[in-house]
Simulated assay, not measured.
Amino acid sequence: MWLWRLLLLAAFALSFGFGLRGRPLPLLFPHFDLLLHFAAFYTLGVLAILALRVRSWLKIVRILLLLFFFAALIEWLQALWLPQRTPSLIDLVAGVLGALAACLTVVLWCRLSR
């Protein structure tokens, strides 16, 4: 269990670091940044559920809320401190959808593996 928690902490640190990076990552194709947001928050969602051993819907909702606020915090800090970065509601939505997809994936995986 400590490994999942360590990976979760590392994923939060990487997401925070890349989110507040001075320059945005280069776009490999249109909307590549949205894919990155989705993937980052999908990873955070899966790791949070595994690290915290979530067994109830209430805890899943709490994780989703935590990840929503984390995504909003990154966008807000970009608006405050990084004039070369553009905060975006679409980025926030992509992150939240990634977290939601992660939660649904883990729930379905647990149901199907019984």
Rank of each mutant, 00 (worst) to 15 (best):
F69D: 06
Q84Y: 01
L104K: 11
A79C: 06
A101F: 06
A94W: 13
I63L: 09
L47R: 01
L35P: 06
L64C: 02
L58T: 14
V46F: 04
L73H: 00
V61S: 08
F29Y: 11
E75I: 04
G22E: 09
G45D: 02
I60H: 03
L36F: 02
T43Q: 05
S56D: 13
A71N: 04
P24D: 06
L28Q: 07
I63E: 02
V46I: 13
V96T: 12
L64K: 10
L27Q: 15
L65K: 08
P30L: 13
Q84E: 08
W57C: 13
L47F: 07
F69S: 12
V54G: 09
D33Q: 03
L27E: 15
L92P: 04
P26M: 15
L97R: 00
R23G: 03
A39L: 01
F70S: 08
A40G: 08
P26Y: 14
L97E: 02
I49V: 07
L20C: 07
F69P: 00
L34F: 11
L73D: 00
S88H: 12
C103N: 01
A79D: 11
L44H: 06
G95N: 07
G98P: 08
R55Y: 04
T105M: 01
I60G: 00
W57Y: 14
S88M: 13
A72P: 02
L64H: 06
H31V: 04
L97K: 00
S56R: 15
L73A: 11
W81G: 10
I49S: 03
W76P: 07
F41C: 09
R85M: 11
D91K: 15
V54T: 14
A51W: 00
P24N: 00
L92Q: 11
R23T: 12
L44K: 06
P24K: 01
G98V: 01
K59G: 02
W57H: 14
G22S: 11
A101E: 04
L104C: 13
A71R: 03
W57F: 15
A39I: 01
F32L: 12
A79H: 13
R55G: 09
L58N: 12
E75Q: 11
G98T: 05
L28G: 12
L47H: 02
L89E: 12
L77S: 05
L65Y: 02
L20V: 10
Q78V: 15
I90N: 12
T105E: 04
L89R: 15
P30I: 14
G45F: 10
Q78G: 09
A102G: 05
L92R: 04
L50W: 06
I60S: 03
F70K: 14
A40N: 05
L67W: 02
R55P: 02
W76L: 15
K59H: 11
L50D: 03
R23M: 09
L97Q: 01
W57K: 13
T105P: 08
L89G: 13
I63G: 05
R55F: 04
A102M: 08
R55S: 12
L92E: 04
T86K: 08
L89A: 13
L28F: 14
G95M: 02
L25K: 05
L36N: 04
L20G: 07
L50N: 04
I74M: 02
T86Q: 11
L65S: 10
H37V: 10
H31G: 09
K59C: 01
